[in-house]
Design a protein around this nucleic acid. Structure first.
Lengths: 143, 143
DNA sequence: ATGCAAATGCAAATCACTTGCATTTCATTG
DNA sequence: CAATGAAATGCAAGTGATTTGCATTTGCAT
């Protein structure tokens, strides 16, 4: 996804196309796993292309905006007190997290397809979504 | 579970039997859903039986002790930034969260029993645990 | 180019929790 | 049953993540 495409996405969501927003969105696109607001901030200020100053609050506000427009997903993983963010992909996914090296592996397929239907009948809740994370030790770390 | 039984539980875990610990543990026993440290604190100080002063840090420290001894479970639910705590039941549980009124309902049974075994074979991960939360609208809020 | 709402920078505030330290309490021992 | 020492608590200050108020800057529709 290039700069223009991102600009069009912003326009489609009716939010202004600013350089910080572009940088944050591009950065998120480049991430293969969820990242913290702090990581985004630090990597962007470190980045030479981004000479102009960027503020932590700006990052938080940008993430809030993206969230409001459902362009990204926010999660709190494991016992970490910080939230993590990632681009919202169409296909809904779960992750397998290695408790030793923190590597995150996406899992294909969702084991809860049939279950939610059943649950909505027994609980009378209208089920909207779910969050599932699985923790374990990856092959490398088992050695 | 009465006061003596709780006292025995403390002794079994080799921790001192103090009135605050007793109050916190009893309170958790009485809760049908996970509660925040703040809720525990506020309810206990409001409680007339608990004339003596109780401090927020004491609550946090007591919860830490219970956690260390695996007497309770800690989770961060939904988008709330606060952790919640509940008595550790033998059977592992998940929760159904109403996105409208935030009420939390425990679900009995876990839909991932067989799945994890399969996943450990296909992924080569050694699966340790998982976190599952389901979001929806409760019967009351649907009206 | 211009105007104005929206976005940003900065500093201070807030929220959930943690820590240091002086004091109190519990439970073992004499 | 009192003494004793370790563990628990109260209080106040500290921390880390996130939010907010407000003055200034920027994007974009005119």
């Amino acid at each position: 996804m290039n700069q223009e495409a991102i600009g069009r996405l912003f326009k489609a969501n009716n939010i202004k196309n600013t350089k910080h927003r572009l940088n944050v969105y591009s950065y998120l696109l480049s991430c293969k796993q969820p990242v913290t607001a702090d990581a985004i901030y630090l990597d962007l200020v470190r980045d030479s292309r981004n000479q102009e100053n960027l503020n932590q609050s700006t990052v938080y506000r940008i993430l809030d905006t993206f969230l409001k427009h459902q362009m990204i997903v926010k999660t709190t993983l494991g016992n970490d007190s910080r939230a993590t963010f990632e681009i919202k992909h169409h296909e809904h996914r779960h992750h397998l997290i290695c408790v030793s090296c923190n590597q995150i592996t996406p899992i294909s397929g969702c084991p809860l397809k049939g279950y939610e239907k059943m649950l909505s009948e027994t609980s009378q809740f209208k089920i909207l979504e779910h969050k599932l994370e699985i923790f374990g030790v990856c092959p490398k770390c088992q050695k």
